[in-house]
């Protein structure tokens, strides 16, 4: 069995429970995905299932090498891999949809976080900064980054300004609030990484799976 799905983040809204509680949810359009390739330890060094998401409607937009990779399967815009146990009965061409998930189940969501650009140390590392006024000329700077002749260098991983966001982020143990199979929608409680419209991976919560095993 596949342990995850590929989807597209649609945005956030809220739903009400019967007791009137408001639950903030992120709406994700997931799958269906088609198995494109089954990787095996013997062949590829590890066991995984590669799936395709979001079919390409115009066949002439697929070049020949790509078409070769998709042999016997409809080409898709997105390819993602999920680790699988060896010897699992998954064949190329097989499709999966959100029926693998259940309401109340915990999932991990992986996406590319929103890019923040080059950011200073206050936003990036939550430094305190200095006073805004009263003669202070030290406002948003990082301050000292080390000592003197000893050690004579700046330590590795010193927190400094730099690029923030736009990296792969995993949020673990989010709860599925609702499933809408007829529209392939999944409602996840809380926020997930990535901007609206981006491709995200949803997999069964790894820590929950580990606890069961």
């Amino acid at each position: 069995m596949l342990n995850g799905m590929v989807g597209r983040k649609l945005g956030m809204t809220q739903i009400f429970t019967a007791t009137g509680e408001r639950i903030p949810v992120t709406v994700v359009e997931v799958g269906p995905v088609t198995v494109v390739q089954v990787k095996t330890a013997a062949n590829d060094g590890y066991d995984a299932v590669q799936v395709g998401f979001d079919p390409i409607t115009h066949e002439n937009r697929v070049n020949k090498p790509t078409r070769g990779h998709f042999k016997g399967v409809a080409p898709t815009k997105v390819l993602r891999e999920f680790r699988a146990d060896a010897g699992e009965a998954v064949q190329p061409g097989q499709t999966f949809d959100l029926s693998m998930f259940a309401v109340g189940e915990k999932v991990d969501v992986i996406g590319i976080s929103k890019g923040k650009g080059f950011q200073g140390v206050i936003k990036r590392h939550h430094f305190a900064g200095g006073p805004a006024a009263h003669g202070s000329r030290f406002h948003r700077r990082p301050g000292s980054i080390g000592n003197r002749t000893f050690p004579g260098r700046v330590f590795k991983n010193k927190r400094m300004p730099g690029h923030q966001g736009a990296r792969r982020v995993t949020i673990q143990n989010l709860v599925i609030s609702r499933l809408v199979p007829e529209r392939n929608l999944i409602l996840i409680r809380g926020a997930i990484p990535s901007h609206t419209g981006a491709v995200v991976e949803i997999r069964k919560a790894r820590k929950v799976a580990a606890a069961k095993a």
């Binding site: 649609l10 809204t13 709406v27 359009e29 529209r183 929608l185 609206t196």
Partner: peptide, 14 residues
Amino acid sequence: MRRQQIEWLEAAEL
């Protein structure tokens, strides 16, 4: 399209 899906969801709750 994205917004429409969310509006469809919300319409049922309004």
